[in-house]
Design a protein around this nucleic acid. Structure first.
Lengths: 182, 182
DNA sequence: ATAGATAGTGATTGGCCACTAACTTGGAAG
DNA sequence: CTTCCAAGTTAGTGGCCAATCACTATCTAT
């Protein structure tokens, strides 16, 4: 039960990814996160300065995790082969819906923050996202349009998952062979 | 100042689109919507049964509006010409960020609702979205992959807008000539 | 004019939630 | 075994917010 602060922070981040993915920033209570971790709600505030810090940690982790998936799937590959491997890996993430939804929650939360003048959050999120974009772009051969297509399909997948289209629905039919067209 | 209930409902829907787009469902208070409309907060509950009904009206309007933009832009066109016209029109919507963000808010809110077991919301949202998808697909010639590509690019645009990448940022470079490849 | 309907407001409330403060428990080193 | 620090808890607070209720103002038709 008892663990080091560092280990606890780790569990909090994992729990927060799930809860924030489902409820969004405002729709998730620190109580819910704490319950999932298995600690009391006030203790979260010993581990993190506030709710927003927890969200930021979860968001950053989410992007890192996404790259890890891409990196492993495309290890040793380049160009179109890498793109195909990564596309397939991303489609595999559809099972882990929370991971994909945490991404979208990051996007809308950044917009909300920017709407009330907190532009620094936007800047750091853009850096994070662009860095992922660049790593993917390099991996698939460096072409800008290929990378754009790759991410475009990813974002559509996120949307279909959010809306809950089942994997056998005809709407998914447009994806077979939709790897970046090279 | 004084207007019919129907007219008021209309202004509420328009105001709600803006507020929900920026704050999300949980992050938007009925007070904020009422302030934007210029009426008292309790009056909203005479015009709509509850906050959720306002959100649903705004979401539905948002999808209708999107089709209207596509329809006007591609009037009299078909196939690739229609696709190009509609792509351009959608890029024009980047200026009206609230419209695009309301879409994303719909997606994440649907997921949140589904996560707590309210699947009917998901069903109606899917019907709405699929109907838009189908109308676009027909308009651009009926090919499933073309339609998928079209929407994929749209979803990526939403993301870039949410994160606040300025229009002259290099990340937008992959879009020129990225119309569905026919 | 005035009665009835429709548009609209002010005051309030009960519940939730981020965050704080003060206290308790457990374990490892001397 | 005790001392000390880090891990963790219980109780509480102030603010926000959806929704309700009782009320007022304005239009329209006779």
């Amino acid at each position: 039960m008892r663990m080091s602060a560092e280990e606890r922070r780790e569990s909090v981040v994992r729990a927060a990814m799930i809860e924030f993915a489902r409820g969004g920033y405002r729709g998730t209570s620190t109580e819910a996160i704490a319950r999932r971790v298995g600690v009391s709600q006030p203790y979260l505030f010993r581990l993190f300065p506030g709710k927003q810090a927890i969200f930021e940690a979860a968001a950053e982790r989410c992007v890192e995790e996404t790259w890890r998936v891409f990196d492993e799937a495309s290890a040793g590959l380049t160009g179109e082969a890498a793109a195909e491997a990564m596309s397939e890996a991303y489609l595999g993430l559809v099972e882990d819906r929370d991971q994909l939804m945490m991404q979208m929650q990051l996007y809308v939360s950044v917009f909300a923050a920017r709407a009330v003048g907190e532009e620094e959050i936007g800047e750091s999120a853009r850096r994070l996202w662009e860095s992922l974009f660049e790593r993917v772009r390099i991996r698939i051969g460096g072409d800008m349009k290929d990378a754009t297509q790759f991410f475009a399909h990813g974002m559509l997948i996120n949307t279909l998952v959010a809306l809950g289209f089942p994997p056998d629905h005809r709407i998914w039919g447009g994806f077979d062979g939709c790897e970046p067209a090279g």
